[in-house]
Amino acid sequence: MNAAAEFAGVSQVFGDFTAVDSIDLRIAQGKLTTLLGPSGCGKTTTLRMLAGYAAPTSGRIDIDGVDSTRTPPEKRNLGMVFQSYALFPHLTVAENVGYGLKLRRVPAAERQQRVQETLELVGLGHLAASKPKKLSGGQQQRVALARAIAIRPKLLLLDEPLSNLDARLRVHMRAELRRIQSETGLTVVLVTHDQDEALEMSDDMVLMRAGRIMQQGAPQDVFPNPANRFVADFLGYENFLTAADGSVLAVRPEHLDVLPVGGPTAAGGLALDATVTDVAYRGVDMLVTVRTVDASGADVRLISDVRSDGLSTVSIGDVVTVTAPPSRLVAMAAEVPEPVR
């Protein structure tokens, strides 16, 4: 697959703070790639370097196979949707969407038609004459999206596009963005700190931490096989213990079972005696917290998410066996050393 954009050894240093630390990254053509990580991981800086708003301190960025490291944003032909939407308040919705076309000297009649088409695509055909201030947050975001798409960009860049929307609208817009991406065939790069969003929307996800890429791949590959403890933690593997060989085992709470002591356990799986320290009933399921000792002799706290109906009552203080089948245990290298920044 062709790369729509490619980073080679790209760093961004502000004073003595390394925001992005020598990353190599390929953005696949026609796919939706998410940059995922906690705040301060360098994902937004990476996007801004791709858009041309920040020049890398070192390294090289190719867009469409052409070295664009020092190309100013206006010469890149990329569509960017800002977190604040950044709609021009003194222009109407149609003028906002037509701004880039006007700069490209698209004749008025064609421009109007393309503006209308793009607004229809995002479902706002009826609001062309409104001023942005009159629109709701969700509508403003669609205008920002339409404005970025209208110029037929090489890549569509989205900086935390859904974070300012309410929960219900956010879930709806995930599907909308996917639909727009598949209808336009655009290469999309989306920055987010929300792992659900990344898992649901990505063709390719890039997990970042402290300016470095921790893991990249399709959600279906990354989710069951986190490369290290950071990725596992970020993706919701809440239980970590040290195995006999010194490697780290991660188990998701829903894969950890709580059984009476002495019951049958799967061969090769996990079976540890533990003491229940907390029980939280949540209707369909319940969260059972237990304390146990792992192979390294360290005290560990594990959380099991079990279906309420499948379990006889468990109370605080009970001694139980926590088990997990071998297929649900994810082994990974021990703790990633904290990068020096």
Partner: peptide
């Protein structure tokens, strides 16, 4: 919003 000028740049404005 400083992003307004950036948005204009991204859309092709010098």
């Amino acid at each position: 919003d400083p992003a307004l000028e950036e948005a204009a740049r991204g859309l092709g404005a010098s």
